[in-house]
Amino acid sequence: MQEGLGKYLLIIGFLLCSLHSRAQEISVKGGFVEDSLLIGQDISFWISSSYPTELEMIFPDSLSSFAPFEFSSKAYFPTEVQGKLAFDSTVYTIQSFEIDKVQYLKLAAVILNGTDSTIIETQLDSIFLTELAPIVSDSTKLKTNLDYQVVNTQFNYPLFYYIIGGFIVLIIVLLLIFGKRIIKWIKLRRLRSRYDQFSELFNSYVNKLKVDPDPDLAEKVLVFWKNYQQQLDKIPFSVLTTKEILLQDFAQELEKPLMAIDRVVYGKRVQENVFQDFEQLDDFTQHRYSKKVEEIKDGK
């Protein structure tokens, strides 16, 4: 009975020695790279490990707890193998927004061995908070500085793009709602402007013909009238003869004045009342202009 008990104790001792030997092969260490920190400043915390190659070790990731610190990023270094040991290391970038003068952190790695897992923590390390301003007390006096400080102005591009985008959207909406009215208004305004320019100059020529019915001046006025009529009716009046113009259905009323003007222009005859023939051309043009205005208003 005593021999059996001694045998079991010997087996248990052997197992404990084996586990102790295996535990010595697994090492997880870590700590802060910096000695001190500022609130919100990036600092680094390193962790390294060595373990048998037949095992698998997992380091903390972004979902792990880094309290009281906040995780920012990590730099992982590839595993190195030396003999039967594997070596891993990772550096974490973290920040703290706590105001404790001394802050502590330790991280935990996980050893996977089949269906079993073991958590191994680094030693607890500390870091000091650096205060940028002294503690304000009732006796602290604030120094007033009213000096003007020149600050470089910066153009607000995002706001500029928002304004331009809103302006473009507004224009598109206005065109969708009032597009046809706006186009009509532009056409009518352009038509009116051209007619006013024509009418003013044409009447000044007619007044000159009243005083001096010169055939050359009459020819100049006729060419001027044909050019404007061509632009108004979209018909090549400038290259049409009187007979060709009269073939247009709407130009039948021009037969008498155009024939009279041709006798003056091509026969070089001075006709005292030739200005009256041009006045009839003016009445015709005014009628054609009014008809174009109605067509635009009707959407034709």
Rank of each mutant, 00 (worst) to 15 (best):
L146A: 05
K187D: 11
K226P: 07
F69D: 01
L5S: 10
D277E: 14
V239F: 08
D147M: 08
K256Y: 12
K180F: 07
E200I: 06
T53G: 12
R194I: 07
Q252F: 06
I164L: 13
V136M: 09
N273I: 08
V33W: 00
L217R: 05
P78D: 09
V150L: 11
S36R: 04
I47N: 06
D125N: 05
D262K: 11
L107W: 02
T144K: 02
L174C: 05
M1H: 11
I26R: 05
D138L: 14
D212P: 03
F45E: 08
Y266N: 13
K187Q: 12
Q95S: 12
T140N: 01
S64Q: 11
F128W: 00
S49E: 11
I120T: 03
S50Y: 13
Y157G: 00
T144N: 03
G114M: 13
L159W: 01
N203K: 11
S73N: 10
E295W: 07
L9R: 15
A251Q: 04
G4R: 11
K208H: 04
Q103R: 13
I99Q: 10
R194W: 09
L191D: 01
N207R: 06
Q280K: 15
T93P: 04
L254P: 02
F97Y: 14
A260K: 12
L176K: 06
I99L: 14
F155D: 02
S117K: 09
S27M: 11
Q286C: 05
L142N: 03
S199H: 07
S204T: 10
F97V: 15
L175H: 08
F237E: 09
C17I: 14
E244Q: 07
G31V: 00
P78L: 07
T144F: 09
